[in-house]
Amino acid sequence: MMEPRHLAEFNIARIKYPLDDPRMREFVDNVDRVNKMADKLPGFVWRLQGESGHAMDMRVYDDPAILPNLTVWENVEALERFVFKTVHGRFFDRRETWFEQPDPTLVLWWVPEGHRPTLEEGVARLDHLKARGPSDFAFGWESLPAAQTGQTARATRASEQAA
């Protein structure tokens, strides 16, 4: 029998401007709103946060311009619903307004239920994906199968944007 597991998600974003720059205001002013909404969603398990209530003040790759985000979800569908079908999707669609786009910026992996990954673990998984490509250890959206019940939120959104 398989051990119960959850989906860990780590992503980074390199800001184009300092967080106190007026061009970042819309993004910065909505971080808490989006995080609080995520915290209440079915399927949300956990997110890394500092005393600020978010992870934007945590440093990765020794670069203050890179913002990390690390979350755990019960399953793929819950994460996809948050990313593509909530207010988060409006910010996701406009991410190029605030962020440069290094590739890849996101990594996913399965964790035992109850495990809370560290920032270092997220960085190691992303580095592994960049160096070796997708595997069971580290993968991206493209490695996930469609939901058993039909199209995932990710696939539905892609077809809506193509229309």
Rank of each mutant, 00 (worst) to 15 (best):
W110A: 08
K36A: 12
S143L: 06
S52A: 15
E3Y: 08
D20S: 13
F44I: 05
E77S: 13
T97H: 03
G53Y: 08
R14G: 12
P68G: 07
P22I: 11
E142L: 07
T152F: 00
T118L: 11
P68V: 09
R33T: 15
F82D: 07
T118K: 05
M24K: 06
M24Q: 10
T152K: 01
V83L: 06
E74M: 05
R125K: 15
Y61W: 04
A147R: 04
R47Q: 07
E80C: 02
F27M: 15
I12Y: 04
Q161V: 15
W141M: 13
T152D: 06
F139P: 05
D32R: 14
Q148S: 12
R59C: 09
L126I: 09
G133C: 01
R154T: 05
L19I: 13
W98Q: 08
I15T: 15
K85N: 09
L129E: 08
G140C: 01
A138V: 04
F10V: 09
D136S: 10
V60H: 00
T86N: 02
R95L: 03
W141Q: 06
Y61L: 13
S135E: 03
L108W: 00
R59G: 00
K16I: 12
A124D: 10
A38Q: 11
L144C: 04
P117N: 05
R157I: 04
K85E: 15
P104R: 00
D63K: 01
Q151K: 11
S143D: 12
G122A: 05
H115A: 12
R5P: 00
R59S: 04
A153H: 11
R90S: 08
L67H: 00
K36E: 13
T105H: 09
F92D: 02
R81W: 03
E77W: 01
K40G: 04
V111C: 04
E3R: 11
G114H: 11
L144V: 12
G43Y: 02
F139R: 01
R125W: 02
R132D: 01
D29W: 08
E121T: 06
R94E: 13
V60R: 00
H128Y: 06
A13T: 08
G114M: 07
F82S: 05
T71A: 12
F44D: 02
E26K: 09
A13W: 11
L67Q: 07
V34R: 13
L108S: 00
R94F: 02
A162N: 11
A65N: 03
E160Q: 09
T156D: 12
E80P: 00
G53L: 06
R14I: 13
D127R: 14
E3M: 15
T86Y: 01
F10L: 12
A38W: 13
E121M: 10
P18R: 12
V123T: 14
T97I: 01
P117E: 05
F84V: 10
P68S: 03
R59P: 00
T105E: 14
E80H: 05
F10R: 09
P22S: 14
N11Y: 15
T71Y: 01
P104K: 00
E100K: 07
G122V: 08
D20N: 15
A162K: 15
Y61T: 04
S159Q: 15
F82L: 08
W110N: 04
G53S: 04
W46C: 11
T97N: 13
L144S: 01
V60Q: 07
G140A: 10
P64T: 01
A163P: 06
